[in-house]
């Protein structure tokens, strides 16, 4: 697992250092407070969502939007809808794991299975019809 650079001083923030985020969190969902509506949130440094649909809706959607079409401001989040760059499954696998320009790498926060699940979800939704599913072995191969 790629550790966060512990010397990174998050300026706006550092609620806690990246290193301390790696420590196990007591699961807040089991606390004594009132129940929290769905969806559940991840309780540690790794994403808790497992299905491609959940992973997309809770992570990718933040930038690529719920319809997968991305958005444009001073720069653009590319559309994943009907995107021919998704034809070779290894390409989105590599981008999810290692990041791409401003897009953060998710390899340290997702298992091989999770990366494969979300890539397969995107490659079979939003007008994409790529039926050759990627596997967790494909993900392992691109981890640097």
């Amino acid at each position: 697992m790629t550790r966060e650079n512990t010397s990174f001083r998050a300026g706006f923030a550092v609620a806690m250092s990246a290193a301390s985020l790696l420590l196990s969190f007591p699961a807040y969902a089991q606390g004594s407070g009132p129940s929290v509506p769905e969806p559940a949130l991840s309780a540690g440094f790794r994403f808790a969502e497992n299905s491609g649909e959940e992973l997309f809706a809770n992570i990718c959607q933040g930038c690529h939007m719920s319809d997968g079409k991305g958005a444009t401001g001073a720069g653009t989040y590319p559309s994943l809808a009907g995107n021919s760059n998704l034809e070779a499954g290894g390409y989105p696998v590599s981008i999810v794991v290692n990041g791409q320009r401003g897009m953060p790498p998710f390899g340290a926060m997702m298992s091989d299975d999770q990366v494969a699940a979300v890539v397969n979800y995107v490659r079979t939704h939003f007008g994409n019809r790529y039926l050759d599913a990627v596997t967790s072995e494909d993900v392992r191969a691109v981890r640097r």
């Binding site: 966060e4 985020l21 540690g44 440094f45 790794r46 992570i59 990718c60």
Partner: peptide, 12 residues
């Protein structure tokens, strides 16, 4: 929130 899964989940 700053980095970590919850920051992405709240963004979504």
């Amino acid at each position: 929130l700053f980095d970590g899964p919850n920051a992405y989940e709240f963004t979504s």
